[in-house]
Nucleic acid binder design. Sequence first.
RNA 1: GGUGAGUUAGUCAAGUGGCCAACGACGGCAGACUGUAAAUCUGCUCCCUAUGGGUUCGGUGGUUCGAAUCCACCACUCACCA
Length: 399
Amino acid sequence: MLEEALREIQRGTAEIIDLEGIEKLLKAYFKEGKNYTVKAGFDPTAPDLHLGHTVLLQKLATFQKYGAKIQFLIGDFTAQIGDPTGKSVTRKTLTQADVLENAKSYKEQVFKILDPEYTEVVFNSEWINQLGASGMLSLTTTFNVARMLERDDFDKRYKSGTSISISEFIYPLLQGYDSVHLKSDIEIGGTDQKFNLLMGRHMQRAYEIGKEQSVLMMPILEGLDGVQKMSKSLNNYIGVTDHPNDMFGKVLSISDELMWRYYELLSAKALSEIDAIKEGVANGSLHPKKVKEDLALEIVERFWGTSEAQAAKEEFERVHAKSEIPTDIDTFSVEGEIWIAKALVDCNICPSTSQARRDIKQGAVKIDQEKVSDEQLQLTQGEYILQVGKRKFAKLRVL
RNA sequence: GGUGAGUUAGUCAAGUGGCCAACGACGGCAGACUGUAAAUCUGCUCCCUAUGGGUUCGGUGGUUCGAAUCCACCACUCACCA
Protein backbone atom coordinates (compact mmCIF):
# COMPACT_ATOMS: atom_id res chain seq x y z
CA MET A 1 0.00 0.00 0.00
CA LEU A 2 2.73 2.43 0.96
CA GLU A 3 4.73 1.38 -2.07
CA GLU A 4 1.81 1.97 -4.36
CA ALA A 5 1.07 5.37 -2.84
CA LEU A 6 4.66 6.45 -3.29
CA ARG A 7 4.68 5.34 -6.90
CA GLU A 8 1.45 7.16 -7.60
CA ILE A 9 2.69 10.32 -5.98
CA GLN A 10 5.96 10.29 -7.85
CA ARG A 11 4.37 9.60 -11.19
CA GLY A 12 5.08 12.28 -13.76
CA THR A 13 6.83 14.59 -11.31
CA ALA A 14 9.70 16.73 -12.48
CA GLU A 15 11.47 16.96 -9.14
CA ILE A 16 10.84 16.21 -5.49
CA ILE A 17 12.73 17.86 -2.69
CA ASP A 18 12.77 15.94 0.57
CA LEU A 19 11.05 12.77 -0.59
CA GLU A 20 11.87 11.22 2.78
CA GLY A 21 9.61 13.79 4.39
CA ILE A 22 6.70 12.69 2.20
CA GLU A 23 7.43 9.07 2.98
CA LYS A 24 7.26 9.77 6.69
CA LEU A 25 3.90 11.50 6.33
CA LEU A 26 2.52 8.57 4.37
CA LYS A 27 3.77 6.08 6.92
CA ALA A 28 2.12 8.02 9.69
CA TYR A 29 -1.10 8.05 7.70
CA PHE A 30 -1.12 4.34 7.02
CA LYS A 31 -0.12 3.40 10.57
CA GLU A 32 -2.05 5.88 12.67
CA GLY A 33 -4.48 7.47 10.20
CA LYS A 34 -2.78 10.78 10.70
CA ASN A 35 -3.60 13.42 8.09
CA TYR A 36 -1.19 15.96 6.67
CA THR A 37 -1.52 19.10 4.61
CA VAL A 38 -0.63 19.75 1.01
CA LYS A 39 -0.59 23.34 -0.17
CA ALA A 40 -1.03 24.53 -3.71
CA GLY A 41 -1.35 28.17 -4.63
CA PHE A 42 -3.29 29.58 -7.53
CA ASP A 43 -3.19 33.03 -8.95
CA PRO A 44 -6.72 34.17 -9.64
CA THR A 45 -5.59 36.20 -12.62
CA ALA A 46 -6.99 33.80 -15.20
CA PRO A 47 -10.07 32.24 -13.64
CA ASP A 48 -10.67 29.71 -16.38
CA LEU A 49 -8.88 26.49 -15.67
CA HIS A 50 -7.24 24.68 -18.51
CA LEU A 51 -5.60 21.28 -18.77
CA GLY A 52 -2.31 22.81 -17.68
CA HIS A 53 -3.78 23.50 -14.27
CA THR A 54 -5.32 20.07 -14.04
CA VAL A 55 -1.89 18.46 -14.02
CA LEU A 56 -1.50 19.91 -10.55
CA LEU A 57 -5.09 19.29 -9.54
CA GLN A 58 -4.85 15.65 -10.44
CA LYS A 59 -1.75 15.30 -8.36
CA LEU A 60 -3.64 16.87 -5.48
CA ALA A 61 -6.46 14.41 -6.02
CA THR A 62 -3.90 11.62 -5.78
CA PHE A 63 -2.70 13.01 -2.48
CA GLN A 64 -6.28 13.12 -1.24
CA LYS A 65 -6.53 9.39 -1.80
CA TYR A 66 -3.66 8.94 0.61
CA GLY A 67 -4.74 11.03 3.53
CA ALA A 68 -3.88 14.58 2.53
CA LYS A 69 -5.91 17.64 3.36
CA ILE A 70 -5.52 20.11 0.55
CA GLN A 71 -4.85 23.74 1.28
CA PHE A 72 -6.17 25.27 -1.88
CA LEU A 73 -4.76 28.73 -1.68
CA ILE A 74 -6.11 31.51 -3.80
CA GLY A 75 -3.47 34.18 -3.93
CA ASP A 76 -5.84 37.09 -3.91
CA PHE A 77 -3.35 39.33 -2.20
CA THR A 78 -0.31 38.27 -4.17
CA ALA A 79 -2.26 38.49 -7.42
CA GLN A 80 -2.31 42.20 -6.92
CA ILE A 81 1.46 42.16 -7.25
CA GLY A 82 1.64 39.68 -10.08
CA ASP A 83 3.93 36.69 -9.96
CA PRO A 84 7.17 37.64 -11.67
CA THR A 85 7.84 34.01 -12.61
CA GLY A 86 8.65 33.59 -16.27
CA LYS A 87 7.70 37.12 -17.09
CA SER A 88 10.07 39.24 -19.03
CA VAL A 89 8.27 42.41 -18.07
CA THR A 90 6.59 43.69 -14.97
CA ARG A 91 3.04 42.51 -14.80
CA LYS A 92 0.08 44.80 -14.64
CA THR A 93 -1.61 44.79 -11.28
CA LEU A 94 -5.22 43.76 -10.87
CA THR A 95 -7.90 45.59 -8.99
CA GLN A 96 -9.45 44.07 -5.90
CA ALA A 97 -12.73 43.65 -7.74
CA ASP A 98 -11.10 41.70 -10.59
CA VAL A 99 -9.40 39.40 -8.14
CA LEU A 100 -12.56 38.58 -6.22
CA GLU A 101 -14.56 37.96 -9.35
CA ASN A 102 -11.91 35.63 -10.74
CA ALA A 103 -11.53 33.77 -7.47
CA LYS A 104 -15.20 33.02 -7.44
CA SER A 105 -15.21 31.23 -10.77
CA TYR A 106 -12.08 29.41 -9.71
CA LYS A 107 -13.87 27.84 -6.80
CA GLU A 108 -16.73 26.74 -9.02
CA GLN A 109 -14.48 24.86 -11.37
CA VAL A 110 -11.98 23.22 -9.10
CA PHE A 111 -14.30 20.78 -7.37
CA LYS A 112 -14.83 18.94 -10.61
CA ILE A 113 -11.54 17.32 -9.77
CA LEU A 114 -10.98 17.69 -6.04
CA ASP A 115 -12.98 16.21 -3.22
CA PRO A 116 -14.46 19.20 -1.37
CA GLU A 117 -14.53 17.29 1.89
CA TYR A 118 -10.76 17.18 2.06
CA THR A 119 -10.15 20.59 0.60
CA GLU A 120 -9.85 23.86 2.40
CA VAL A 121 -10.04 26.95 0.23
CA VAL A 122 -8.12 29.85 1.68
CA PHE A 123 -7.31 33.39 0.60
CA ASN A 124 -3.93 34.77 1.52
CA SER A 125 -5.14 38.34 1.92
CA GLU A 126 -6.69 37.02 5.15
CA TRP A 127 -3.38 36.83 6.97
CA ILE A 128 -1.21 39.06 4.85
CA ASN A 129 -3.42 42.05 5.50
CA GLN A 130 -2.85 41.42 9.20
CA LEU A 131 0.90 41.61 8.85
CA GLY A 132 1.08 45.37 8.98
CA ALA A 133 4.12 47.43 8.17
CA SER A 134 6.29 45.96 10.91
CA GLY A 135 5.33 42.40 10.01
CA MET A 136 6.15 43.18 6.45
CA LEU A 137 9.47 44.65 7.43
CA SER A 138 10.52 41.65 9.46
CA LEU A 139 9.53 39.47 6.53
CA THR A 140 11.97 41.33 4.31
CA THR A 141 14.83 40.90 6.78
CA THR A 142 14.82 37.15 6.25
CA PHE A 143 16.20 37.39 2.74
CA ASN A 144 18.63 39.51 0.78
CA VAL A 145 18.83 41.10 -2.62
CA ALA A 146 21.84 39.14 -3.84
CA ARG A 147 20.02 35.86 -3.30
CA MET A 148 16.89 37.26 -4.81
CA LEU A 149 18.83 38.18 -7.91
CA GLU A 150 20.12 34.64 -8.18
CA ARG A 151 16.71 33.75 -9.40
CA ASP A 152 16.96 33.00 -13.05
CA ASP A 153 14.28 35.31 -14.38
CA PHE A 154 15.33 38.21 -12.16
CA ASP A 155 18.93 37.64 -13.15
CA LYS A 156 18.08 37.75 -16.84
CA ARG A 157 15.95 40.80 -16.52
CA TYR A 158 18.51 42.55 -14.39
CA LYS A 159 21.33 41.84 -16.82
CA SER A 160 19.31 42.72 -19.88
CA GLY A 161 18.22 45.93 -18.26
CA THR A 162 14.52 45.14 -18.10
CA SER A 163 12.58 46.75 -15.32
CA ILE A 164 12.08 44.87 -12.05
CA SER A 165 9.67 46.38 -9.59
CA ILE A 166 10.51 46.20 -5.87
CA SER A 167 7.08 44.72 -5.31
CA GLU A 168 8.13 41.73 -7.36
CA PHE A 169 10.77 40.93 -4.75
CA ILE A 170 8.00 40.81 -2.20
CA TYR A 171 6.07 38.18 -4.09
CA PRO A 172 8.22 35.15 -3.30
CA LEU A 173 8.55 36.29 0.30
CA LEU A 174 4.81 36.36 0.73
CA GLN A 175 4.35 33.03 -0.95
CA GLY A 176 6.86 31.60 1.49
CA TYR A 177 5.07 33.24 4.37
CA ASP A 178 1.85 31.54 3.30
CA SER A 179 3.52 28.25 4.11
CA VAL A 180 4.45 29.58 7.54
CA HIS A 181 0.91 30.63 8.30
CA LEU A 182 -0.65 27.43 6.98
CA LYS A 183 2.04 25.20 8.49
CA SER A 184 2.04 23.17 5.30
CA ASP A 185 3.66 19.74 5.22
CA ILE A 186 4.02 19.62 1.46
CA GLU A 187 3.69 22.20 -1.27
CA ILE A 188 3.28 21.39 -4.89
CA GLY A 189 3.62 23.55 -7.97
CA GLY A 190 5.07 23.75 -11.45
CA THR A 191 8.81 23.56 -12.06
CA ASP A 192 8.76 27.25 -12.85
CA GLN A 193 7.74 27.79 -9.24
CA LYS A 194 10.87 26.18 -7.80
CA PHE A 195 12.27 29.35 -6.33
CA ASN A 196 8.98 30.32 -4.74
CA LEU A 197 8.38 26.81 -3.44
CA LEU A 198 11.78 26.67 -1.84
CA MET A 199 11.05 30.02 -0.26
CA GLY A 200 8.39 28.21 1.75
CA ARG A 201 11.07 26.00 3.29
CA HIS A 202 13.27 29.01 3.91
CA MET A 203 10.49 30.93 5.62
CA GLN A 204 9.35 28.01 7.73
CA ARG A 205 12.91 27.72 8.98
CA ALA A 206 13.25 31.47 9.54
CA TYR A 207 10.01 31.62 11.51
CA GLU A 208 10.87 28.44 13.41
CA ILE A 209 7.58 26.64 13.05
CA GLY A 210 9.22 23.29 13.62
CA LYS A 211 8.96 21.79 10.17
CA GLU A 212 10.07 22.32 6.63
CA GLN A 213 7.70 21.48 3.86
CA SER A 214 8.55 18.93 1.21
CA VAL A 215 8.32 20.28 -2.29
CA LEU A 216 6.93 18.45 -5.29
CA MET A 217 7.18 19.93 -8.74
CA MET A 218 5.21 18.99 -11.81
CA PRO A 219 6.46 19.73 -15.30
CA ILE A 220 4.79 22.50 -17.21
CA LEU A 221 2.31 21.27 -19.76
CA GLU A 222 2.97 22.49 -23.27
CA GLY A 223 0.10 24.11 -25.12
CA LEU A 224 -1.40 23.02 -28.41
CA ASP A 225 1.58 24.39 -30.34
CA GLY A 226 3.82 21.99 -28.43
CA VAL A 227 6.39 24.64 -27.69
CA GLN A 228 5.14 27.26 -25.31
CA LYS A 229 3.46 26.48 -22.07
CA MET A 230 -0.28 26.15 -22.13
CA SER A 231 -1.77 29.47 -21.23
CA LYS A 232 -4.82 31.46 -21.87
CA SER A 233 -2.97 34.52 -23.05
CA LEU A 234 -1.14 32.52 -25.71
CA ASN A 235 -4.44 31.02 -26.79
CA ASN A 236 -2.99 27.53 -27.02
CA TYR A 237 -5.06 25.97 -24.28
CA ILE A 238 -7.82 23.47 -23.75
CA GLY A 239 -10.19 24.85 -21.15
CA VAL A 240 -12.01 22.49 -18.82
CA THR A 241 -15.24 24.23 -19.72
CA ASP A 242 -14.62 24.01 -23.45
CA HIS A 243 -17.45 22.44 -25.40
CA PRO A 244 -16.91 18.66 -25.85
CA ASN A 245 -16.59 19.09 -29.61
CA ASP A 246 -13.91 21.73 -29.22
CA MET A 247 -12.12 19.73 -26.58
CA PHE A 248 -12.05 16.66 -28.76
CA GLY A 249 -10.92 18.60 -31.81
CA LYS A 250 -8.21 20.42 -29.92
CA VAL A 251 -6.72 17.22 -28.54
CA LEU A 252 -6.67 15.69 -32.00
CA SER A 253 -4.91 18.73 -33.42
CA ILE A 254 -1.80 18.27 -31.30
CA SER A 255 1.30 16.72 -32.80
CA ASP A 256 2.12 13.06 -32.25
CA GLU A 257 5.11 13.94 -30.17
CA LEU A 258 3.06 16.12 -27.88
CA MET A 259 0.46 13.39 -27.59
CA TRP A 260 2.87 11.26 -25.55
CA ARG A 261 3.49 14.14 -23.28
CA TYR A 262 -0.22 14.54 -22.70
CA TYR A 263 -0.54 10.83 -22.04
CA GLU A 264 2.14 11.06 -19.43
CA LEU A 265 0.73 14.06 -17.63
CA LEU A 266 -3.01 13.89 -18.19
CA SER A 267 -4.04 10.29 -18.74
CA ALA A 268 -5.26 8.14 -15.90
CA LYS A 269 -3.80 5.11 -17.63
CA ALA A 270 -1.01 3.31 -15.83
CA LEU A 271 2.51 3.89 -17.05
CA SER A 272 2.86 0.26 -18.07
CA GLU A 273 -0.26 0.55 -20.17
CA ILE A 274 1.08 3.64 -21.90
CA ASP A 275 4.34 1.84 -22.64
CA ALA A 276 2.37 -0.93 -24.30
CA ILE A 277 0.60 1.62 -26.50
CA LYS A 278 3.89 3.19 -27.49
CA GLU A 279 5.20 -0.21 -28.39
CA GLY A 280 2.11 -0.81 -30.53
CA VAL A 281 2.61 2.41 -32.47
CA ALA A 282 6.29 1.67 -32.96
CA ASN A 283 5.67 -1.75 -34.46
CA GLY A 284 2.77 -0.57 -36.56
CA SER A 285 -0.02 -2.53 -34.90
CA LEU A 286 -1.63 0.67 -33.62
CA HIS A 287 -2.36 3.74 -35.73
CA PRO A 288 -1.26 6.95 -34.04
CA LYS A 289 -4.51 8.60 -34.93
CA LYS A 290 -6.44 5.93 -33.06
CA VAL A 291 -4.20 6.42 -30.06
CA LYS A 292 -4.80 10.14 -30.15
CA GLU A 293 -8.53 9.61 -30.39
CA ASP A 294 -8.46 7.43 -27.31
CA LEU A 295 -6.68 10.19 -25.43
CA ALA A 296 -9.17 12.78 -26.62
CA LEU A 297 -12.01 10.52 -25.57
CA GLU A 298 -10.56 10.00 -22.12
CA ILE A 299 -10.08 13.70 -21.54
CA VAL A 300 -13.51 14.74 -22.74
CA GLU A 301 -15.04 11.96 -20.67
CA ARG A 302 -13.41 13.26 -17.54
CA PHE A 303 -15.08 16.65 -17.81
CA TRP A 304 -18.31 15.86 -19.63
CA GLY A 305 -19.10 12.20 -19.14
CA THR A 306 -19.15 9.20 -21.45
CA SER A 307 -22.11 9.97 -23.65
CA GLU A 308 -21.01 13.53 -24.38
CA ALA A 309 -17.56 12.25 -25.24
CA GLN A 310 -18.96 9.67 -27.64
CA ALA A 311 -21.12 12.32 -29.27
CA ALA A 312 -18.10 14.57 -29.70
CA LYS A 313 -16.20 11.78 -31.35
CA GLU A 314 -19.01 11.01 -33.77
CA GLU A 315 -19.47 14.67 -34.57
CA PHE A 316 -15.80 14.98 -35.27
CA GLU A 317 -15.87 12.08 -37.69
CA ARG A 318 -18.90 13.46 -39.45
CA VAL A 319 -17.41 16.88 -39.95
CA HIS A 320 -13.83 16.06 -40.70
CA ALA A 321 -13.52 12.52 -41.97
CA LYS A 322 -16.59 12.81 -44.18
CA SER A 323 -16.45 16.59 -44.41
CA GLU A 324 -20.08 17.08 -43.64
CA ILE A 325 -21.60 20.05 -41.91
CA PRO A 326 -21.53 20.13 -38.10
CA THR A 327 -24.86 19.51 -36.39
CA ASP A 328 -25.20 22.65 -34.38
CA ILE A 329 -23.87 25.82 -35.88
CA ASP A 330 -24.72 29.41 -35.15
CA THR A 331 -27.59 30.79 -37.15
CA PHE A 332 -27.93 34.38 -38.28
CA SER A 333 -30.59 36.12 -40.24
CA VAL A 334 -30.63 39.31 -42.26
CA GLU A 335 -33.27 41.24 -44.14
CA GLY A 336 -32.94 41.65 -47.86
CA GLU A 337 -30.07 40.89 -50.19
CA ILE A 338 -26.61 40.81 -48.76
CA TRP A 339 -23.14 40.93 -50.21
CA ILE A 340 -21.17 37.75 -49.52
CA ALA A 341 -18.22 39.51 -47.87
CA LYS A 342 -20.50 41.43 -45.57
CA ALA A 343 -22.42 38.27 -44.75
CA LEU A 344 -19.21 36.54 -43.63
CA VAL A 345 -18.41 39.43 -41.32
CA ASP A 346 -21.93 39.56 -39.92
CA CYS A 347 -21.78 35.86 -39.13
CA ASN A 348 -18.54 36.33 -37.16
CA ILE A 349 -16.50 34.01 -39.33
CA CYS A 350 -14.40 36.78 -40.87
CA PRO A 351 -13.01 39.75 -38.95
CA SER A 352 -13.40 42.31 -41.77
CA THR A 353 -14.65 42.57 -45.31
CA SER A 354 -11.07 42.97 -46.43
CA GLN A 355 -10.22 39.62 -44.90
CA ALA A 356 -13.38 38.11 -46.35
CA ARG A 357 -12.39 39.22 -49.84
CA ARG A 358 -8.94 37.72 -49.43
CA ASP A 359 -10.42 34.46 -48.21
CA ILE A 360 -12.71 34.31 -51.23
CA LYS A 361 -9.81 35.02 -53.54
CA GLN A 362 -7.92 32.12 -52.00
CA GLY A 363 -10.79 29.72 -52.40
CA ALA A 364 -11.36 29.30 -48.68
CA VAL A 365 -15.02 30.23 -48.73
CA LYS A 366 -17.79 27.75 -49.41
CA ILE A 367 -21.54 28.09 -49.56
CA ASP A 368 -23.43 24.84 -49.11
CA GLN A 369 -20.17 22.96 -49.78
CA GLU A 370 -19.62 24.80 -53.07
CA LYS A 371 -16.52 26.91 -53.46
CA VAL A 372 -17.23 30.62 -54.01
CA SER A 373 -15.18 32.37 -56.67
CA ASP A 374 -17.13 35.56 -57.25
CA GLU A 375 -16.34 38.10 -54.58
CA GLN A 376 -19.16 40.33 -55.73
CA LEU A 377 -21.73 37.63 -55.14
CA GLN A 378 -25.04 38.83 -53.69
CA LEU A 379 -27.01 36.43 -51.54
CA THR A 380 -30.70 36.53 -52.29
CA GLN A 381 -33.55 35.14 -50.23
CA GLY A 382 -32.92 31.67 -48.86
CA GLU A 383 -30.90 29.69 -46.36
CA TYR A 384 -27.18 29.18 -46.72
CA ILE A 385 -24.45 27.30 -44.94
CA LEU A 386 -21.38 29.52 -45.01
CA GLN A 387 -17.93 28.10 -44.42
CA VAL A 388 -14.46 29.61 -44.20
CA GLY A 389 -11.56 27.21 -44.10
CA LYS A 390 -12.09 23.90 -42.40
CA ARG A 391 -13.47 24.93 -39.08
CA LYS A 392 -15.55 28.05 -39.33
CA PHE A 393 -19.22 27.53 -40.11
CA ALA A 394 -22.37 29.62 -39.90
CA LYS A 395 -25.92 29.31 -41.10
CA LEU A 396 -27.45 32.39 -42.67
CA ARG A 397 -31.08 33.08 -43.42
CA VAL A 398 -31.75 35.85 -45.87
CA LEU A 399 -35.30 37.06 -45.47
C1' G B 1 18.98 65.16 -9.73
C1' G B 2 22.78 64.89 -14.19
C1' U B 3 24.32 62.69 -18.93
C1' G B 4 23.32 59.56 -22.93
C1' A B 5 20.26 55.93 -25.77
C1' G B 6 15.50 54.62 -27.12
C1' U B 7 9.63 54.22 -28.12
C1' U B 8 7.61 51.53 -35.76
C1' A B 9 1.74 46.90 -37.29
C1' G B 10 0.08 40.56 -32.83
C1' U B 11 5.73 40.05 -31.33
C1' C B 12 10.87 40.98 -32.66
C1' A B 13 12.97 44.32 -35.98
C1' A B 14 14.56 47.50 -40.73
C1' G B 15 13.62 52.27 -42.46
C1' U B 16 16.73 58.84 -40.86
C1' G B 17 12.50 64.26 -46.00
C1' G B 18 9.04 62.20 -51.54
C1' C B 19 9.74 55.57 -54.96
C1' C B 20 6.25 54.07 -47.40
C1' A B 21 0.52 50.80 -45.75
C1' A B 22 6.27 50.84 -44.38
C1' C B 23 12.23 45.38 -45.84
C1' G B 24 12.76 40.98 -43.03
C1' A B 25 11.79 37.19 -39.19
C1' C B 26 8.32 34.81 -36.03
C1' G B 27 3.35 34.16 -35.15
C1' G B 28 -1.56 33.83 -37.43
C1' C B 29 -5.03 32.65 -41.56
C1' A B 30 -5.87 30.08 -46.15
C1' G B 31 -4.61 26.54 -50.32
C1' A B 32 -1.95 21.71 -51.80
C1' C B 33 -0.36 17.08 -49.50
C1' U B 34 -2.30 14.27 -45.03
C1' G B 35 -4.46 11.26 -40.01
C1' U B 36 -8.21 18.70 -39.23
C1' A B 37 -0.86 15.45 -36.90
C1' A B 38 4.10 16.78 -37.97
C1' A B 39 7.30 18.12 -41.96
C1' U B 40 7.19 20.47 -46.76
C1' C B 41 5.57 23.83 -50.77
C1' U B 42 2.42 28.27 -52.15
C1' G B 43 -0.47 32.68 -51.17
C1' C B 44 -2.28 36.25 -47.71
C1' U B 45 -1.64 39.12 -43.16
C1' C B 46 -4.61 47.99 -41.10
C1' C B 47 -9.76 49.43 -42.67
C1' C B 48 -13.39 50.66 -46.57
C1' U B 49 -18.10 47.21 -52.22
C1' A B 50 -11.92 49.10 -53.68
C1' U B 51 -7.09 49.22 -60.55
C1' G B 52 -9.75 53.95 -56.06
C1' G B 53 -10.33 56.07 -50.94
C1' G B 54 -9.30 56.45 -45.63
C1' U B 55 -6.41 56.00 -41.02
C1' U B 56 -1.24 54.33 -39.16
C1' C B 57 5.21 54.52 -37.07
C1' G B 58 4.57 56.78 -28.08
C1' G B 59 1.38 61.83 -27.40
C1' U B 60 0.65 67.06 -28.69
C1' G B 61 2.02 71.06 -31.56
C1' G B 62 5.37 73.08 -35.39
C1' U B 63 8.80 73.47 -39.98
C1' U B 64 7.91 71.94 -45.23
C1' C B 65 4.65 71.72 -51.56
C1' G B 66 5.58 66.96 -48.91
C1' A B 67 7.31 63.90 -42.31
C1' A B 68 7.82 57.30 -39.49
C1' U B 69 12.02 60.42 -40.88
C1' C B 70 13.58 67.56 -39.09
C1' C B 71 12.25 70.94 -34.53
C1' A B 72 9.77 71.90 -29.57
C1' C B 73 7.30 70.21 -25.43
C1' C B 74 5.08 66.02 -22.74
C1' A B 75 4.78 60.71 -21.33
C1' C B 76 7.17 56.13 -20.80
C1' U B 77 11.63 52.62 -20.95
C1' C B 78 16.83 51.63 -20.37
C1' A B 79 22.19 52.58 -19.26
C1' C B 80 25.98 55.17 -16.67
C1' C B 81 26.86 58.80 -12.81
C1' A B 82 24.75 60.76 -8.05
